[in-house]
C-alpha cells in the first residue's frame, strides 16, 4: 500500500471530525450562521498539517459566528444564552423547549453516520438515500398494485419466464437483478441500524447537557463561577463524554453497535456477491479467487517454516509444529536473506 493510499483513509477520518466543527461550536450559539471567512488556509502543507490548518481555520470561523450569536443573548442575561443553547441540544428541546429547531440532531449526526458508512467502504450514507428511497418506493408500489411483495412477484415471474430467459442467455442478468435486490434490502436494513445508533447517540448528548446543568448548579451552590465561554464548552465536553461512554458501553449501546456492524457487513457481503457475478460474466478473476491464491502461498510459506524448524536445534516448547503430509522433512534449509550478512559493527 502506498503512502497516498494510506493517507486516503486518514483524510476521510479528518473529513469526519472537521465536518463536525461547525455543528459542534454552532450548537453553543443556537446554530447561528458561521462568521466571516477568517484566515486563509496556507497551501501546499504536508499531510496532516494541512488538515490541522483546515481545522484551525474552521474553528476560527465558527468562533466568530459564535461570538456574533452570543452577543445578543448575553445582552439579556446568561439564562437566555443557556436557553438558546438548550434549544440546540438534541432532543432536550422536545422536553423543555417546544419551539426548538428539530433538525439539529440530524445535522450534527449526519457526518458521523456518513463516515461510518465511508470507513466501512460501503459508500456515503447520503448518496445512497435516493437509491434506497427508490427501492422502497418500488416495493411499496408493487405491493399496492398486486397485493404481493416483490419477492413473491419475482418468484412467480421466474417460474413463468426463468427457463426461457436462461435459454436465450439471460441467466446472468437474472442473477444480477436478484443480487441487486439483495443489496437494496441490505441497504435498507443498514439505514435502520444506523438510525437506531443515532437515536442512542442523541440520548447520550441529551444526558450530557443535563449533566452539565447539574454540574453548573452544583458550582453555583458552592459559590463557584465560570467566567469563560471556552471553559464552559470544556465542561460540556467532559460531561457529555461521560454520558456517551455510559450509553455506548451499556447493554443497549453494545447491542446497537453490534447491529450496526452486522448490517454493514451484510450490505458489503451482498455487494461483493454482485461483483462476483459480474466478474464471472466478464471472465475476470474475482477478489475471492485472488485471495485463494494468496492463501495457498501463505500455506506454502508455513510449510517451509515448519520444515526449517524441523531441521533446527531450537525446538519450541510443546513440540514442533506439525508438517503437512506432502512436506519433505529433509527440505533444504532456506538461506538467510542477503541483508542478514551485516555484522554488529554495521
Amino acid at each position: 500500500m502506498s503512502a497516498s493510499e494510506s493517507n486516503e483513509g486518514s483524510r476521510a477520518t479528518y473529513d469526519f471530525w472537521l465536518g463536525l466543527i461547525p455543528q459542534f461550536l454552532g450548537q453553543f450559539g443556537g446554530f447561528a450562521p458561521a462568521g466571516g471567512p477568517g484566515t486563509a488556509v496556507p497551501e501546499d502543507l504536508p499531510f496532516p498539517v494541512d488538515q490541522i490548518a483546515k481545522a484551525a481555520a474552521m474553528t476560527q470561523q465558527s468562533l466568530e459566528g459564535l461570538a456574533q450569536a452570543l452577543a445578543p443573548a448575553l445582552k439579556t442575561g446568561v439564562p437566555d444564552m443557556l436557553a438558546q443553547w438548550a434549544k440546540a441540544s438534541p432532543a432536550f428541546a422536545f422536553t423543555r423547549f417546544g419551539d426548538a429547531d428539530t433538525a439539529t440532531p440530524q445535522t450534527m449526526l449526519a457526518p458521523w453516520l456518513a463516515l461510518m458508512s465511508n470507513s466501512t467502504g460501503t459508500g456515503g450514507a447520503l448518496p445512497q438515500a435516493p437509491l434506497q428511497a427508490m427501492s422502497r418506493a418500488w416495493a411499496d408500489m408493487a405491493s399496492r398494485v398486486t397485493g404481493a411483495n416483490t419477492a413473491q412477484m419475482d418468484t412467480a415471474f421466474d417460474r413463468t419466464y426463468g427457463a426461457l430467459s436462461d435459454g436465450v442467455g439471460l441467466g446472468p442478468a437474472r442473477k444480477l437483478q436478484a443480487a441487486w435486490r439483495d443489496v437494496m434490502n441490505a441497504a435498507v436494513a443498514q439505514q435502520d441500524a444506523r438510525a437506531q445508533y443515532a437515536i442512542l447517540v442523541q440520548d447520550a448528548f441529551v444526558q450530557g447537557f443535563q449533566r452539565l446543568l447539574t454540574a453548573l448548579a452544583a458550582k453555583a451552590d458552592a459559590g463557584e463561577r465560570v467566567d469563560s465561554v471556552l471553559a464552559l464548552i470544556r465542561m460540556w465536553a467532559a460531561n457529555t463524554e461521560h454520558a456517551v461512554h455510559e450509553t455506548l458501553q451499556s447493554e443497549r449501546g453494545l447491542a446497537a453497535t453490534a447491529a450496526l456492524i452486522r448490517s454493514d457487513l451484510a450490505h458489503r457481503k451482498k455487494t461483493q456477491q454482485m461483483a462476483t457475478i459480474l466478474a464471472d460474466q466478464f471472465d475476470m478473476a474475482s477478489r475471492r479467487e485472488l485471495d485463494e491464491a494468496f492463501r495457498e502461498i501463505q500455506a506454502l510459506k508455513r510449510e517451509l517454516r515448519a520444515s526449517d524448524a524441523a531441521n533446527s536445534d531450537d525446538a519450541p516448547a510443546g513440540g514442533r509444529a506439525p508438517l503437512r503430509k506432502s512436506t519433505s522433512a529433509k527440505r533444504r534449509r532456506r538461506p538467510d536473506p542477503a541483508i542478514d550478512a551485516g555484522r554488529d559493527d554495521a
Binding site: A57, A67, L74, K75, L82, L213, L216, A217, R225, V226
Partner: peptide
C-alpha cells in the same frame, strides 16, 4: 436551568473579548 445560570459570570463583553483573543491565537 436557573441554578446553572447562577454559576455563569459571562458577559457579552467578556465573551467577545475571549473569543476575539482565541481567534487571534488561531
Amino acid at each position: 436551568l436557573s441554578r446553572a445560570a447562577a454559576a455563569l459570570s459571562i458577559t457579552a463583553e467578556s465573551a467577545a473579548k475571549e473569543l476575539e483573543a482565541a481567534r487571534g491565537k488561531l
